[in-house]
Each structure stands twice: as structure tokens, then as C-alpha cells.
Design a binder for these strands. Sequence first.
DNA 1: AATTAAAATGTAACCGTTTACAATATGCTA
DNA 2: TAGCATATTGTAAACGGTTACATTTTAATT
Lengths: 331, 331
Amino acid sequence: MSVTIKDVARAADVSVATVSRVLNKKPNVSPDAVRAVEAAVDELGYSPNFLGRDLRKSETKRILAIIASMRHSFYSDVLIGMEQAAIAEGYDVLVATTHDDPAHEMRLLGMLFSRSVDGAVLLAPKLDAKTISGLAENHNIAICLERLENCKALTVTIDNVRAGKDAVSYLLGKGHKKIAMISTEIRTQSSIDREEGYRRALKENGIQFNEQYLYYGDYDNESGVSGCAALLGLKNPPTAIFCISDMVAIGAMNAAIKLRRKIGKDIMIFGFDNISFSRIFSPHLSTVEQPCILQGRIVVEKLIRNIKSDARDNKLYMLPHSLILRESTGD
Amino acid sequence: MSVTIKDVARAADVSVATVSRVLNKKPNVSPDAVRAVEAAVDELGYSPNFLGRDLRKSETKRILAIIASMRHSFYSDVLIGMEQAAIAEGYDVLVATTHDDPAHEMRLLGMLFSRSVDGAVLLAPKLDAKTISGLAENHNIAICLERLENCKALTVTIDNVRAGKDAVSYLLGKGHKKIAMISTEIRTQSSIDREEGYRRALKENGIQFNEQYLYYGDYDNESGVSGCAALLGLKNPPTAIFCISDMVAIGAMNAAIKLRRKIGKDIMIFGFDNISFSRIFSPHLSTVEQPCILQGRIVVEKLIRNIKSDARDNKLYMLPHSLILRESTGD
DNA sequence: AATTAAAATGTAACCGTTTACAATATGCTA
DNA sequence: TAGCATATTGTAAACGGTTACATTTTAATT
């Protein structure tokens, strides 16, 4: 059917070993042989079957990035970082989506178990810590953009407690005392951590936590709309809202505008992620920026180190975040 | 090192053939053997090495989707459709990004040539028609979301000429005579086609094409901003603008707002893609919707059919689009 | 020219599966 | 119980590469 290394060997009148050596640019092969092989390769339009190679070498030089969906655009930057690091080491990055289904996430991890890839990075996993911990003992798994409590697996993320605290502290510093938060119903660790940061900032400034100021939704726009509407409808409404994501923050701004509040004046809105829309939407959104590209680069660098060595680094790495201040907080 | 089918065979006290039969649920294997093998598999934590299997069977049951970047969120829906069709046929879909670099696109196609995947779908390819035509002769390649002039490769897209014509005709139907278009500098076929649709709509309604009304930028927000500003700055400004993408349209709306035009009244804006932001942004955007999920599903169905048979279907399929009318055209 | 080291090449085993084919075990019929 | 069909099992050859090792060729040294 398809042309193999044997066909090339025959055409070039050399052995398969020589062909392999030429193809892999190994030393100790004569210029004549190189020419003959290259000619045969062109002639026949040969390209090596990686299944054979990968099987023999027991490595694929491929890393799988497992993401929930392509909707969330900041995965894009993480991917860029992952690819930079991967290409530098001669690896390729493949992406697969779980559509928020832990079962599908597990199915995709099957590519790792079946040795179709050398390692996998879970971007914001849906599987629980215990499961992943177990798998990470025997496989090259890493987690990025999220941490899992009590999960012994290589993890690269930011310090969401600090990030939440920084954002809220900034609002406090501007003199706000009535600060609300729109968080998520789903208890991801990043939400828990950002909430914890919110609480700590209040506490350290001697402000009593107010149950009514904590609204639960999801990461999407509609949650921001309904959350903001609910919060501003309170008898004693907040003057600032810290949102779990930029999408939520944009929803919140839309709701505030509809209620004729002057954003950045009557009401401050703080987002999280610094998605590209946060500076397209008017007013421009203040937000927390994660170093996405860097996280991607680091996680792949460390994962590849794990793949290459037998000692497994399964530590937690937290990278620095930063605040981006724009119109929505009056800046 | 790692546990193989031989280890399982030894532990279950059967031959590797029997293990393989159990694993693949082949008939004619005794209940005893099934039990023994399953016990051994659990015991040893065995999972089959697909490199071996794939090599032997010369198939991977994997399809690669090659996209420019994850920035453009509507790829997400196409992916969903692709996965639906793939999973129904027992295939997996992997994604890889080119970052708009044709060389990288070619590198990724290498996964196809090296038989690491059974087929590849190019979502909006950057390689030229001739190159792809050549490759498609010997490989299972398909194109989606874009067509290439004179490219003999399986293609699934919409009729962009009609789509452009429909959008502009709608504006004409509302009585507008001065209709501009913001297109792209880069001559992708979809841009060319949508422009052609724009021209045809004008022509059929007896309106002279006005060079000044055709602005060239890219697919991003900033092009919309500068394009709209330029168009509205003309001595004889248009009263409606058809934009090559929703991102551009949103930029255009931002510019129009800044210039204190009432969108949907003083100026109509029409987008393309129906991205989720088009109904979040205020005013809501009128736009052309492509059947993304359907395109994904169809392209994979047909690609898998090609993979399974030896006859190669390399025709062009155009799926129906629709107009979504919202506030930005006064609806 | 003989000796020897170095360079180039080839042979064949191996990676982990699947599967054609052969061999054995089982059940049924007469 | 022999004879035969059928069900179950095992053996070994692929699949397409890489690479250790053996072998041949070439170049260098005397």
C-alpha cells in the first residue's frame, strides 16, 4: 500500500539501517549514501510512519492539553506558552476538549495511558483531587490554571487568595466599605480561594462580612447581569463589586448601565482574567491579570522534565498576578 | 518497565491472543478466560499500548483539526459538531493551532503524513489551493469554514456570496442606498466572496458601486473602529455598514457611539459570525449566522467516509446560512 | 605492502499489538 | 463409544521503524 523504509532502501540500494541513519541525521554515513537516500525519498514521496518509530522508541514527543472548551479565550494564551516550551524541546502540543464532562476528561486521559502522548496537562480539571493524585503517581500529568486541594500532582497556577485579596484591598483603599462579590456556585478551588481573599481583605480592614454581598452564579455573562441587578436592588446596595471573571464583570456592567448607574463613579466593577474584551467594552474593565503564557510555558517545561527523568516533581508553583486598572474602577 | 499484554497473559495463564480477544470483545472466548483476563488486567493495572495496536492495524481512529488560533470562539462550535460526528464513528478529535503560520500548518499536516492521525480538517487554511490540492490527492484532508478557488479537496462551508448578498439586500430593503462594507486586506476567499455578494446586491438594485465605501482592514476590533471612523468621516457618509466579522462590527459600533451616532437609526451595522458577544454587546448586533456545529458534523462525517473507502469525495458542500436581526439594524 | 584503526554498512532483534492459521478441547449424533 | 462439527485456545507472523552488534570498506601508519 503505502511506501515504507524498505522501499526507500531498495530504491537507494542500501539497507534500511542506512536509510534510518540518513533520515535521523546520524553520523558516519557517506555523502553518497545520503544523496542516494534523499533522492529515493523524494522520488517515492516517502514520509516515515511514526507509529513504527514511536513504538520502537516508546515515546511520541507529544503532549496533550485537556481543556473544558474553546469558549474561554484565555486558554489561547496558555496554549501559546505551552507550545513555545514544547517546540523548544522538540515536542508538539495537541488539544482536546472535555465540554465540562469529567467522564470525557477521563476518556481523554486514556490517550496518556495508552501511550498515544507522553504527557497531559489539565487546564482547570473537572476530575477530583483524589483521582488525579492517583493517576499522577504513575503518569506524567500536570495541572494548570487551577489547583486542587490535597492533590499530589505537578501544578502551575497563581495565588488566587492573594489575587482576590489584592483586588478587594484596592477597592478598600479607594475608600469603599460596601464591597460585594459575584462568585460561582460550583466550588472550584480558584473560586474558593478568591472568596477567601475577599474575606481576608475585609477582615484585615475591620469590615464585617455581609452574607448578602456574596452572590453565587457561574462564570458567564448572565450571572453578572442577574448578580449585579440583585446586589444593586438591596436596601443597602454595595458601591463596588468584585467579579469572579471578566465575562461576569461585563454582565454586571451591562446591568449597572441599564440601571443608570455611572460605572467607575456610583459603582466600581472589578473583573478577573483580562480577556481581550475587557478593554474593548466601554467602560474599560479593571481586572486581575494572570500570566497565561508564562503559566503555559512553565507547566510544559516542568512536565517535560518529569517525562525525561524518573524522579517526579509534583509540587505546586504559584506565579505572580497583577492588577490592571481601568475605567470601571474610576482609573 | 511498563506492563504489556504478555504480562497479562502470563498472569491470567492464557495466551496473548486470548487476552487480545477479551480486550476487544471478540466472540468465541470462554467465560473462564474472560474472568481470568479481566482479573489480571485489574490486578496489574494494564492498559493497552495503542502504538502497538495502531501500527498493527494501520489506523489511529483519530482526526486532527487544524485551526489558526483559539481566539476566534466560533471554532468552538465547529469543534463540537466535529466531535459529535467523530464519536459516533468511534473516532477522537484532536486540535492543533497554527498561529496563522502556513509553515506551522504544514508541520501539523505532518501528523497526517506520518500516520499519527487518520485524517485532518483545516479550519480556514492558510496554505494555498495548489499545495492543498496536491496533498489531498493522497491524503484524507478536508477544509471547513472556507473554500479555496480551484482546490480539489473535500470542502464544507457556506455560500459566502449569497450570505453577503443577503445581508446587503436586507439593508437595501430597508431603504438604504449608501451602504459601505468593511472587508479584509488579506484576500481570503470568504472575504472575496462576501465582497462579491455586496457588489451583486448593489448592482441588482441599480446602485452604483462606490470605491470609497469599501474599507480594508482585518478581522479584529480595531479595524472596525478605524473603518467606521473613516467611513463616517466622508463628505457623503454611508447610512449602513456591512462588516466582515462581528468583532469588526463591534469595533464599528464603538466608533459610531463615540461619534454620537444612534445605531439602528442614524447608522445601521451588520456583522458576520453571530459570536456570543454579538448579543451581549449593547446595542445587540444584527449578523449572519453560519451553521457551525452542522459544518463540523458534516465535514467529519464525509472525511470519515473518505477514510474508510478508497474512493475520495473531494467535492464542495455549501450549507445554508441565516440572518439574525437585532437592534443594530433597528429591529 | 602489511597492519591497524576508523568509517560505513548490513543483519536481525525488538517495541506491543492483532490475527491468520493450526491445534486442541468440547459437545453432539448415531 | 467412535466420529464429526464446533468452540476455544495457542503459535507465530506481520505492522514499520530503530539500533546493538557484526561485518565490510576505506584511510592512515609503518
